[in-house]
Amino acid sequence: MPVIEARELTKIYGEVRAVDQISFEVAPGESFGLLGPNGAGKSTTMRMIGGTSLRTSGTLLVNGLDPEVNGPEVRANLGVVPQQDNLDNELRARENLVMYGRYFGLPYSYLRPKAEELLQFAQLTEKAAEKVDNLSGGMKRRLTIARALINEPRVLLLDEPTTGLDPQARHILWDRLFRLKEQGVTLIVTTHFMDEAEQLCDRLIVMDHGRIVAGGSPAELIRQYSTREVLELRFGSERNASLVDQLRDFGRLEVLPDRVLVYTEDGEAALEAVRHRGLVPVTSLVRRSSLEDVFLRLTGRSLID
């Protein structure tokens, strides 16, 4: 049985089709990504999975149950990290973990040691008695993530988990998430960072304006929608656009304000050919295709604006 089964899932806010007839499935133990720019409908989808936002139409099953009908039962096995931290500002750091566990109906005998373990996990042991207001942004994020683990969830929903974390903290979190994945936890991650999606997700859907524009593993998506390599050329902001015509025959092009992207199987060879033609870029770079390129191809826009 799939952990999540969404069929034509739709949420309309007034005039806005926040989520527009999306269908997808997530298998147990899989880590599944929702990739898309701001406003794509990722958070709304996450809230509907938790049953904290009512869908407009379509069907949705989480572990075989409808979250609108069996909300408490469904959420008992979920861990939710919302996009915006919603820690309890009237409680201290440790109390936030313990009380959250109480909301799940868990006993203190389980929660006291569990809270210490999670404080350690979040590197907040020293801050246990601190008021939430006195924690830094990164600490709050870590506490929110630790809180989501209090009930040892089988399914973890992470809505932009690393937004606001510094690069080191990001890598630590990814490492922790890998460990959870090894233990069989199903991860559902939204992000607008393509490297995060590539790192974390076995499979993902690319969303835009509430719709699914593509789906598959990161490697599949790149293979399907992009070339193996990308040659990035910067000719200076005035010349980028005017040189496009002379580059057409090298492959598919994307012209961004600050650079031209040439999609090619062999970046070095393409660069050689560009030079040979007497076009001298200010800087150039050959790299592998990423999900960013997939997104650009699918929507004509950058993921991060």
């Binding site: 938790g50 904290t52 909300g71 408490p72 039962e73 959420r75 008992a76 979920l78 939710v80 919302p82 915006q84 919603n86 820690l87 309890d88 500002n89 959250y100 909301y103 799940f104 109906g105 009930n151």
Partner: peptide, 14 residues
């Protein structure tokens, strides 16, 4: 504002 209930309702509470 405080989003307190969003937190509570993400648990098994209703």
């Amino acid at each position: 504002f405080a989003k307190l209930y969003q937190g509570m309702l993400a648990t098994s509470m209703g």
